[in-house]
Write a protein that binds this DNA or RNA. Structure first.
Length: 532
RNA sequence: GGGCGCGUAGCUCAAUGGCAGAGCAUCGGCCUUUUAAGCCGUUGGUUGAGAGUUCGAGCCUCUCCGCGCUCACCA
C-alpha cells in the first residue's frame, strides 16, 4: 500500500522481461551481433533510390538499351524492412519493403563470400530494417532485383512482425497467408498492422488525401481556416453529452467541445465572412461501428449564403474529394453502387416521409395529432415529447435507410433545430438539410439563425425540453448571444463527419478502419487482477 | 447499459467431455536464379482470467476482462 508507485514500477519491469521464445532468440542475436562488432541500431543510414525509383530507373535503362541488349549498369543503395527471406546456402533472396513498395535482394557468395551470405541468413530476420548496396538486375524469372555487393543492419526487430505472405495468382489476384486479420489486434497494434498490411497504409493515405482536398477546396473558395477552443467553459452547437475536465489553477470546470459551431459563427460577427475548421470533436456517448468518442469534423460558415447555396457547394466539394481519391464519381460502398456526380437528389422531408409512410407532417402541427396518426397507421415510437422528435423517428426508421444515392433531405422541424433559421411563412419548419449517402447521415447544414432575440427564445425553449436532472445541459450561451447582438450577417453553415466521408470513399464498414488509433478499452490482461 | 456470438502457439486456424494439433514464422541440416522456394528434422501452449460440476474440462455452469454483431443512446 505504501510506495505504490515503486510497486508498479517493479511490476512493469517484470512484464517487460516476459519475452517469448522467438524474441529471446532475437535478443541473443543482438548480443552476438554486438560481439561481432555489428551495431544493431546504427545512427545513420544511406539511400540512393526508393524501391519504386530503382525499378523505374532499371526499366527505363532497359528501354534505352533496346530488346536483347544489356541495360546500362545502375548502382543503388536501398533501405527497407525485410518481409521475406529465402536462403539457399550459397545464394540468398530476400524481399525488402519501403514506403514505395517491395523489391528483391539477391545475395551470392561470388560477390560477398560464403561467410557474409551465411551471416545474413543467420542474423537477419523478417522485420529488420536493412540497407543494401549493389547493382540492379533481372533474375531468370524476370523480377527486377538488387544484386547485393554489401549490406548493413539499420535496426533489429526484437518482436517478429506478424508473418504474412502473399502469392500472386496467374490472374493477378493476391492470396495472403496468415495475414494479421484480427480487427482488435490490428487496431491495438496499428503499427504492426500498417507494417504488414499495405492496403491499410493505402486507406490512411486516402484519408490524408481527402482532408487535403477538402482544405484546398475551401481555401480556393476564399474560406479562411481557423482554430477555435477545444477546451470550452460551455459546450454547444449540438445535442450530445460532453467530456468534462478541470483546470487546476483556474479552479474551473471545462468541457471538451462537441461542435465548433458557436465559435465559428462568432467569427462571422467579426466580419471574417467565410471561415472553416477541420478538427476533433468529442462526444461522451456510445461507441459503435460508426461512433468514436473523438472524431474529425469539418464545419464552415458562409456569409450571405443560404442552405441552397450550401447544398451546391457541398455536392461540389464531396464529389471533388471522391474524384481525387478514386479517380471517378462512381464508387461501390459495401456492395452498393453510389454515384456522387452532381447535382444530387433533393428531397423535401415532408415529401420523403409521405412517400414511405403516407403521413403528411404538415397536417399535424402538434405532437398529439401526429402521434395519434402514427399510432393509427401502426407506428409505435418510443416515448417522445415533441413533434420534432416524432418526425425524427419516422425519418430515422423509415426514410434514412432508403436514401442510398447522395440525397439532400431538406426542411426540418423547428423544434429539433435550435440554431437554424425559420422558413419564411412556415413557423414549424427551418431551412436545414442533411446529406445522406448509403443510408446514413454524412452532413448537416442550415441557413443559420442570426436573430439574437429569436436565438434567445430558442435556447429557452430548448431548455424546457430537458428535465431538471439534466443539470449539465446549459444551452444558454450568453456570450454567443452578445456576439449576435452586434449583428451577424445572414449565412449558411455546414458540418460533416470526415471519418464517415472517409468510410464511404474507402469502402470501410467500420469507423475503426479509418482511424489510426480508435478508442478501445484497456487491454491489460486478466480482469480479476485489476485493483482499485 | 441490454441481447446474441467469439477469445486455442508469434500470425491464420483445427480439435464428440478422454494424450492440445496443422500451415506459416522460429531453430538445425542439405541446396548457386528463388519468390507461400523445396526436402529432412526441431522447437514452441497458464486454451483470455478466476471459480465450479466431473474419474476426467479447450469443450458444460457461474463471475470477471476484452472483441464482434445488434438494440438503446447519439443532430
Amino acid at each position: 500500500m505504501f510506495c505504490r508507485g515503486a510497486f508498479n514500477f517493479f511490476e512493469r519491469h517484470v512484464i517487460m522481461a516476459e519475452y517469448n521464445s522467438l524474441e529471446q532468440v532475437r535478443l541473443q542475436k543482438i548480443t552476438e551481433l554486438r560481439a561481432a562488432g555489428v551495431e544493431p541500431y546504427p545512427t545513420r543510414a544511406e539511400r540512393t533510390h526508393t524501391a519504386a525509383q530503382a525499378i523505374a530507373e532499371f526499366e527505363a535503362a532497359e528501354k534505352t538499351a533496346g530488346p536483347g541488349n544489356p541495360p546500362a549498369e545502375i548502382k543503388a543503395i536501398l533501405t527497407g524492412r525485410i518481409r521475406a527471406t529465402r536462403a539457399m546456402g550459397k545464394l540468398s533472396f530476400a524481399h525488402i519493403e519501403d514506403v514505395t513498395g517491395k523489391i528483391q535482394l539477391f545475395l551470392r557468395i561470388n560477390e560477398l563470400g560464403q561467410e557474409r551470405v551465411s551471416f545474413f541468413d543467420k542474423y537477419y530476420d523478417i522485420g529488420d530494417f536493412v540497407q543494401a548496396s549493389g547493382v540492379l538486375m533481372r533474375t531468370r524469372t524476370g523480377e527486377i532485383t538488387l544484386h547485393v555487393h554489401d549490406y548493413a543492419l539499420l535496426a533489429k526487430a526484437v518482436s517478429p512482425l506478424p508473418a504474412s505472405k502473399d502469392v500472386t495468382q496467374e490472374d493477378g489476384s493476391v492470396i495472403r497467408y496468415a495475414a494479421l486479420e484480427g480487427a482488435e489486434l490490428r487496431a491495438r497494434q496499428r503499427y504492426a498492422d500498417l507494417a504488414v498490411n499495405p492496403d491499410v497504409r493505402e486507406t490512411f493515405r486516402k484519408r490524408a488525401r481527402i482532408i487535403s482536398v477538402l482544405r484546398r477546396f475551401l481555401d480556393e473558395h476564399d474560406f479562411l481556416e481557423v482554430e477555435t477552443p477545444i477546451l470550452q467553459p460551455l459546450y454547444g452547437g449540438a445535442a450530445a453529452r460532453p467530456f468534462t475536465t478541470y483546470h487546476n489553477q483556474l479552479k474551473q470546470q471545462l468541457y471538451l467541445r462537441i461542435s465548433f459551431e458557436l465559435y465559428l459563427k462568432r467569427l462571422l460577427v467579426g466580419n471574417l465572412e467565410r471561415v472553416y475548421e477541420i478538427g476533433r470533436d468529442f462526444r461522451n456517448e456510445g461507441v459503435s461501428f460508426k461512433h468514436n468518442p473523438e472524431f474529425t469534423q469539418l464545419e464552415f460558415y458562409w456569409a450571405y449564403a443560404d442552405y441552397l447555396k450550401v447544398m451546391e457547394l457541398t455536392e461540389q466539394m464531396v464529389s471533388t474529394a471522391c474524384h481525387a481519391v478514386n479517380g471517378t464519381y462512381k464508387i461501390v460502398y459495401q456492395g452498393q453502387d453510389i454515384d456522387f456526380t452532381p447535382p444530387w437528389k433533393r428531397l423535401e422531408m415532408r415529401q420523403g416521409i409521405m412517400d414511405v409512410t403516407g403521413i403528411d407532417i404538415h397536417a399535424h402541427p402538434d405532437a398529439e395529432s401526429l402521434l395519434a396518426t402514427m399510432r393509427a397507421k401502426g407506428y409505435n415510437p418510443p416515448h417522445m415529447a415533441t413533434r420534432g422528435k416524432l418526425i425524427d423517428y419516422l425519418v430515422g426508421e423509415y426514410l434514412e435507410p432508403t436514401l442510398i444515392q447522395p440525397t439532400f433531405l431538406y426542411d426540418y422541424p423547428r423544434d429539433i433545430s435550435p440554431l437554424a433559421k425559420s422558413k419564411p411563412g412556415d413557423p414549424l419548419t427551418v431551412e436545414r438539410f442533411e446529406g445522406y449517402v448509403a443510408g446514413f447521415e454524412l452532413c448537416n447544414a442550415f441557413t443559420e439563425l442570426n436573430d439574437p432575440l429569436d436565438q434567445e427564445q430558442r435556447f429557452i425553449e430548448m431548455g424546457r425540453d430537458y428535465t431538471a436532472e439534466d443539470e449539465e445541459l446549459n444551452l444558454m450561451d450568453e456570450d454567443y448571444l452578445r456576439a449576435m447582438r452586434y449583428g451577424m450577417p445572414p449565412n449558411g453553415g455546414f458540418g460533416m463527419g470526415v471519418d464517415r466521408l472517409t468510410m464511404l470513399l474507402t469502402d470501410k464498414h467500420s469507423i475503426r478502419e479509418v482511424l489510426l488509433f480508435p478508442h478501445l478499452r484497456s487491454d491489460e490482461a486478466g480482469g480479476s487482477e485489476t485493483r482499485e
